[in-house]
Amino acid sequence: MTLLPAPSTKRLGLVIDLDICVGCHACAVNCKEWNTGGYGAPLGDVDAYGVKPEGAWLNRIHTFEVSPKDSPAQIVHFPKSCLHCQDAPCVTVCPTGASYKRSEDGIVLVDEDRCIGCGLCSWACPYGAREMDPVEKVMKKCTLCIDRIYNDNLAEIDRVPACVRTCPAHARHYGDLGDPNSDVSKMVAERGGFDLMPEAGTRPVNKYLPPRAKTSPNTPPKQSEQTESLEATGFLGWLDKALEKLG
């Protein structure tokens, strides 16, 4: 059913801290590893050990350079996966009902047995969160590790998405963003968490935390201080003057 369900009070999702992410790609690797044996068909690769390896990934880490006007450029590692949008355009465009949003927790999933591989949902997603599996020819996307988070066979500590569990820097957090008292919601409120591309009108559940403002110990000294320090005295002053005379 591709009509969006009534908004759920529970909105499971991720909070990604861009201040902390070190760009190690461990989340993407563990995502690939878990999801190739988890929900749905394996995550396919083509020419995996060849010259042009390519495959379906549910999580990819981009790296951006941000240049503030008054301080040096900084590098921001930027993991990106499905944002489980509240107004998910990928769901409503699906002609078969394969793409759907769960009414109980807001997770957006693909029923792979119904997917015809037309690719329209990937066109409708502003973020590039969906990728066609090159082997299975069905649409793949982040499931929020639905086969982990509700899995009673796993130890409680492991009942979080694979990317969150594996992040060595704790840059990724999982929780209920529909509950204002959850840890993730508090984190978003404290740090000014934001939506990606809000103008796309998708109302993402996942939030990103901005990099903290940098301190600037290497700010060049003011002009007046500079001239002062150039006026050497004593032996150095004599040397300076002597060398000046030499031309």
Binding site: H25, R60, T63, F64, V66, F78, G119
Partner: peptide
Amino acid sequence: SATGLGKIGEVRLLERPHTGGNYLTREM
């Protein structure tokens, strides 16, 4: 706006996630 980093300064892509192409780069 896509990264939300525009508030800090000018944003430029430094590295793609993978050196090769993918479904998204070919399709879109």
